[in-house]
């Protein structure tokens, strides 16, 4: 009996070894270890054995059974692993082929600049103020210290609808409206982006419609040095940490004193190049201290309150920043143009 078991063990292990697939292996399991298998058969003859041999033989039979079982298990794992290998090999793809495109659009470059500036000033405690594009002459000019007879007011330069209503020529009327709403009480801290219109023929540097963004701060004790400090931060944020600014005296009816603000050239760093016309400086905005007449007309006591205002053309900033050579690109909306301003 002992020999028969050894034989069976030998036979089974060989069969397991030879099994090429999982089905064969399962057949082997059934035929050797099943209820009708040869080991069970051998054990049926146990009754003929003596009382002390019986447990020994039982133990041996279990040993054989366990060995076969564990070998089958081992083989099964090997076969399964091989099957997985084979399947994976079949599933291999060319990972260098292009993926399925995900279509995305993006902001218009002017929106991009506007949002960048808005966010910078929101971080400094400003809110974003908006106003009508069709505006009253009063807010567009008069409230900004440009009375009807002022030489800087040429009807030829503005799109009038009636004598008293026009397309705003600047975003400054939003400042006048906002100040008026504040009812003579500060602080006012706003940034006003928007479309404006001038009676210009469209060419590479002129557009009858363009965008401006203006800022206004009115409070007690606002100084010109505050304007300088604020614009320095702005220049560094928008054009790079190394930028410096330079104020040049200028004239705007709604500010006094008035200054033009130049930023050190971000292309050449100030040594002189074609962008800065060899001067090292680029004019980016106009600003100044709010004219006392403007404060008074909007209901602020100019003895108690002072303020500063600044404004710039968004197209100009975008053209400088991205090296765009023709203002008409912004309104032609060629997708090959807009697409270039991806990152938000």
């Amino acid at each position: 009996m002992q020999e028969r078991l050894k034989e069976l063990q030998e036979e089974a292990l060989q069969a397991v070894d030879a099994a090429a697939d999982l089905k064969k292996l399962n057949d082997i399991r059934v035929s050797y270890l099943g209820k009708k298998g040869p080991i069970t058969e051998v054990l049926k003859g146990m009754g003929k054995l003596s009382a002390e041999e019986r447990p020994k033989m039982g133990a041996l039979a279990n040993e054989v059974r366990d060995l076969i079982s564990s070998k089958i298990e081992e083989k099964q794992q090997a076969l399964e692993a091989a099957a997985v290998e084979a399947r994976l090999a079949l599933e291999t793809i060319d990972v260098t082929l292009p993926g399925r495109p995900v279509q995305t659009g993006n902001h218009h470059p002017l929106t991009r600049i506007v949002e960048e500036i808005e966010d910078l000033f929101i971080g400094m405690g400003y809110t974003v103020a908006e106003g009508p594009e069709v505006e009253k002459d009063y807010y567009n000019f008069e409230a900004l210290n440009l009375p009807k007879s002022h030489p800087a007011r040429d009807a030829q330069d503005s799109f009038y609808i009636t004598e008293e209503i026009l397309l705003r020529t600047q975003t400054s009327p939003v400042q006048a409206r906002t100040m008026e709403k504040h009812g003579g009480k500060g602080p006012v801290k706003i940034i006003c982006p928007g479309k404006v219109y001038r009676r210009d023929s469209d060419d590479a540097t002129h557009s009858h419609q363009f965008m401006q963004i203006e800022g206004l701060v009115v409070d007690e004790n606002i100084r010109m040095s505050d304007l300088k400090g604020t614009l320095e931060l702005f220049a560094k944020k928008l054009f790079g940490e190394d930028r410096e600014i330079r104020l040049r005296p200028s004239f705007f009816p709604f500010t006094e004193p008035s200054v033009e603000v130049d930023v050190s050239c971000f292309k050449c760093g100030g040594h002189g190049c074609n962008i800065c016309k060899q001067t090292g400086w680029i004019e980016v905005l106009g600003s100044g201290m709010v004219h006392p007449n403007v404060l008074e007309m909007s209901g602020f006591d100019s003895k108690k309150y002072s303020g500063f205002a600044f404004g710039m053309g968004v197209e100009r900033i975008a053209m400088l920043k991205y090296g765009i050579d023709d203002i008409r690109h912004f309104y032609t909306n060629d997708t090959r143009f807009i697409k270039q301003f991806k990152l938000n």
Binding site: M124, G125, K189, V217, D219, R223, M224, D226, G229, L233
Partner: peptide, 13 residues
């Protein structure tokens, strides 16, 4: 001219 920032009451942006 020195460079300073407005010093009045703070406003939430």
């Amino acid at each position: 001219l020195p460079s300073t920032l407005p010093s009045g009451s703070s406003t939430p942006g």
